[in-house]
């Protein structure tokens, strides 16, 4: 499978490369080679933002050399044995550039780094991530936002989050393919926020969700652990789940998405701020590229 790595020459870019390697690196079980396209997106220059007073001021040659150096640095991050290339293109926005590259090259996943620092979990994902999570046409993997998160070094387990709305099958299948490729376990989780429900209602909801998760897993004809995670709200439900070091979470796209596009729903946004593992968001009606494994 091809991965588009949204690279910037900083900690976030290095994180994206590490995440892509964790998801697809090493030997894949299905025999299909992993290939990383390490992509740097340059701003698209329009002559209509001419500089005043005129002249290029040496900018073009300096930036070109800098980008070459960055590309070399990025390729050094990829270990021997993994195929990778550096790709540079200019586009109106970073999100647009990455998505275009993914569609043109038939990539299965766009991988981006998270926002670092103390305030990060409160501020949510950065502007590039937000734009991608609201428009990409292929799944997007994002490193955890904030301090608590770590980048996995491999993949031991994949957790698919599903709700009761249509689209759960695509999420579970995508998660199954990702898990199958690396021989990882699969877990299918539904979240239950207790706030506002009486004991009686909660029992009913719990039973419904359990049945729903089991049905989806059965329909997909896969083996997976199924869980209904509870907490007073979504954040607490996510935090109540045990997580492994080498794990990723997979969620679906909101109903607001155009067909085959991403739109990060409100629940997923809240999860993103709480999760300590990378999150993969799957577009609505997404067809996983490979047959379901295992």
């Amino acid at each position: 499978m091809r991965y588009i790595v949204g690279y910037t020459a900083d900690a976030r870019g290095a994180e994206a490369v590490r995440l892509a390697l964790a998801l697809g690196g090493g030997l894949s079980r299905d025999g299909e080679d992993t290939h990383l396209d390490i992509a740097m997106i340059l701003p698209e220059h329009t002559p209509f933002s001419a500089t005043y007073p005129g002249g290029d001021h040496g900018y073009r040659s300096i930036i070109a050399e800098q980008v070459d150096a960055w590309a070399n640095e990025a390729l050094q991050l990829v270990p021997t044995g993994v195929s990778a290339r550096a790709v540079v293109r200019s586009a109106p926005s970073e999100a647009e550039g990455l998505d275009d590259l993914a569609r043109e090259s038939g990539a299965g996943l766009i991988v981006i780094g998270g926002r670092q620092g103390k305030l990060a979990s409160r501020m949510g994902p950065g502007s590039v991530a937000t734009a991608l999570l609201h428009s990409a046409s292929v799944p997007v993997a994002m490193a955890p936002v904030g301090d608590g998160g770590t980048i996995p070094q491999g993949l031991d387990r994949v957790t698919a989050f599903i709700g009761t709305r249509p689209g759960a099958a695509a999420v579970v299948e995508t998660a199954a393919v990702a898990a199958g490729r690396r021989g990882a376990e699969l877990r299918v989780v539904s979240l239950l926020g207790q706030d506002g429900g009486t004991e009686g209602q909660l029992a009913t909801w719990r039973a419904e969700l359990k049945g729903h998760v089991a049905a989806v897993v059965h329909e997909a004809r896969i083996r997976a652990e199924t869980i209904v995670a509870e907490g007073r709200n979504i954040e607490e439900a996510v935090q109540a789940l045990p997580w492994q070091r080498d794990e990723v979470a997979v969620v679906g796209s909101s109903r607001l998405a155009h067909r085959r596009r991403l739109f990060l729903g409100a629940t997923a946004q809240r999860m993103l701020r709480t999760l300590t593992v990378p999150l993969v968001v799957v577009p609505r009606d997404h067809q996983p590229p490979a047959p379901v494994g295992a």
């Binding site: 080679d33 396209d37 698209e44 590309a71 390729l75 990829v78 270990p79 021997t80 044995g81 993994v82 195929s83 990778a84 290339r85 550096a86 790709v87 540079v88 293109r89 200019s90 586009a91 275009d100």
Partner: peptide
């Protein structure tokens, strides 16, 4: 739109 690439072989 411009597009250009350079690569590493599988040998890295």
């Amino acid at each position: 739109m411009t597009h250009i690439e350079s690569g590493t072989g599988p040998e890295g």
